[in-house]
């Protein structure tokens, strides 16, 4: 990549540095800004990180999966989006894959992830 583009993307590194570093298998809580008309409020989304895509580009996103009243919900967040207010790292998971697609077919006991200590 061109040096000039790297320079331009330096700003995004600063935005990324504001959040704790996390990876697949970790449990995080994402505070996401939502605009309703003129009002702005913060919504929280807590779950397991399934994957991180397009790493170290401006289009980097991460997928969070949670079970909400019996129904699994996955949300994809762009990490550099100004709407991502805050990310809390709650628990580090011990996993052996970068993409945890295998969790999608599982629930309950078999969908557990060991904690990394």
């Amino acid at each position: 990549m061109s040096k000039l583009i790297e320079e331009l993307e330096q700003e995004s590194k600063a935005i990324k540095a504001k959040h704790p570093s996390f990876g697949p298998g970790d449990t995080i809580n994402v505070h996401y800004k939502i605009k309703e008309g003129n009002k702005e409020r913060v919504q929280q989304f807590q779950g397991t990180v399934l994957q991180i895509k397009n790493v170290s580009t401006n289009g980097e996103t991460f997928t969070v999966r949670k079970i909400s009243s019996g129904i699994a919900v996955e949300r994809i967040f762009p990490i550099l989006s100004p709407n991502v207010d805050k990310i809390e790292l709650l628990r580090r998971g011990k996993v052996r894959r970068a993409k945890l697609y295998y969790l999608r077919g599982r629930k309950g006991k078999s969908a557990r992830i060991k904690e990394k200590l």
């Binding site: 990549m1 993307e9 800004k33 401006n58 762009p78 989006s81 709407n83």
Partner: peptide
């Protein structure tokens, strides 16, 4: 032309 990248606007649109 130097190359392409992406940025986010105030609404969070890439």
């Amino acid at each position: 032309k130097i190359g392409m990248t992406s940025i986010y606007d105030d609404n969070g649109q890439s």
